[in-house]
Simulated assay, not measured.
Amino acid sequence: MIRKLTFLKNWQDTQNPFRNFAVEEYLMNHVEKGEVILFLWQNRHTVVIGRNQNGWHECNVKKLEEDGGILARRLSGGGAVYHDTGNMNFSFLAQKGDYDVAKQLSVIVEGVRPFGIQAEKSGRNDIKNEGRKFSGNAFYRHGSLCYHHGTLLIAEDMKNMVKYLNVDGSKMNYKGVKSVPSKVVNLSDLNPSVTVESLTASLKESFGKVYGLPVHEIHSRDIPEEALTDRIRFFSSWEWRFGGAHEFDVPLEGRWDWGFLKFSFSVDHGLIEDVSVDSDGLEADFIAAIPGVLKGKRYEGKELARAVLSMETGSMEEKEVQKDAASLLETAG
């Protein structure tokens, strides 16, 4: 039986995805029997991928990072999503016996009703208005501890969603889980009075109404910072964000006055397992030696470029090939 409702809004304190995921996990690990927690949070300029996805496939990582964005990986499954401050995220956290996805989704449906927005649950993962999705959901369980989290599109920049998420699938032969595009809509387009602040207040009210209990609000300062440090480090690590990628094959090619280079990489868990090179360049020995310095490296442009630039060269022609190969490899990822 649910005896306690706890509410935390964290979007005013941080928009860092790594800290938000650490807070979410902390809340899950500390939720009491008979308690349900509703956590509202935001990420700034972030692409979030599911646990079993490949970040390089799901988004243009290089462009995202050049524009000051962040690629993050969550613990739950599902597809890739773009987050900015026009999007708000929610998490429901509970122990197994208190975890009720249908009831939790009802909080969202009832939360948008005061704005005149009729919402319906679609399958297991989405909440829509007249067939257009404004909320995608994902789920995670660790032993008897559970959470259900999702997005709420309020005034998200749809151009950025397309800019960073729509990667040409022909560039990779991919063996993991691909995202499936869906028609989406911002809640503010349905009613301009929907803002982060107004929807927060409405969701807090619907949370209490659906469960028939008073809502106890806590603050992020109630969570000890030292309890988050290691998990922030984990969620922000390259190994977690990229090292979990399934095996995939990707070509990379360029052409110059001296000839062309085409690299074919076999990458698993973010590391290059094998690489071959095809070229009509005359510096055959130098070109043939390049794969040897790339094997075992992270599939990360700057690291690959550094590896090639560390190779010894014996002529001006080899130096030219080295420079151009490094420039091409720097675009990897």
Score class of each variant (00 low, 15 high):
residue 181 P to T: 03
residue 192 P to A: 10
residue 176 G to C: 10
residue 179 S to H: 04
residue 195 T to C: 13
residue 184 V to G: 05
residue 173 N to Y: 10
residue 186 N to K: 04
residue 164 Y to N: 04
residue 172 M to I: 07
residue 170 S to A: 13
residue 195 T to S: 14
residue 187 L to S: 00
residue 198 S to P: 12
residue 169 G to H: 00
residue 174 Y to L: 13
residue 164 Y to P: 00
residue 201 A to D: 09
residue 160 N to D: 14
residue 180 V to Q: 13
residue 179 S to G: 11
residue 163 K to H: 08
residue 187 L to K: 00
residue 196 V to C: 14
residue 176 G to M: 09
residue 185 V to W: 04
residue 192 P to M: 13
residue 160 N to C: 10
residue 179 S to M: 06
residue 187 L to M: 05
residue 160 N to M: 14
residue 178 K to L: 14
residue 191 N to S: 10
residue 161 M to A: 03
residue 174 Y to A: 05
residue 165 L to R: 00
residue 170 S to Y: 05
residue 178 K to M: 12
residue 192 P to V: 06
residue 164 Y to I: 01
residue 175 K to Q: 15
residue 204 K to P: 01
residue 161 M to G: 03
residue 170 S to R: 08
residue 187 L to D: 06
residue 184 V to Y: 00
residue 183 K to S: 14
residue 193 S to N: 15
residue 184 V to R: 10
residue 176 G to A: 02
residue 199 L to Q: 00
residue 164 Y to W: 06
residue 200 T to S: 11
residue 194 V to E: 07
residue 176 G to K: 03
residue 165 L to V: 02
residue 174 Y to K: 05
residue 194 V to M: 09
residue 174 Y to S: 07
residue 181 P to N: 02
residue 202 S to W: 03
residue 197 E to K: 10
residue 204 K to N: 07
residue 193 S to H: 15
residue 169 G to M: 10
residue 172 M to D: 07
residue 202 S to R: 01
residue 175 K to G: 07
residue 196 V to Y: 02
residue 169 G to K: 00
residue 195 T to I: 06
residue 182 S to V: 08
residue 163 K to R: 14
residue 179 S to V: 00
residue 198 S to R: 08
residue 182 S to M: 11
residue 201 A to K: 13
residue 195 T to A: 04
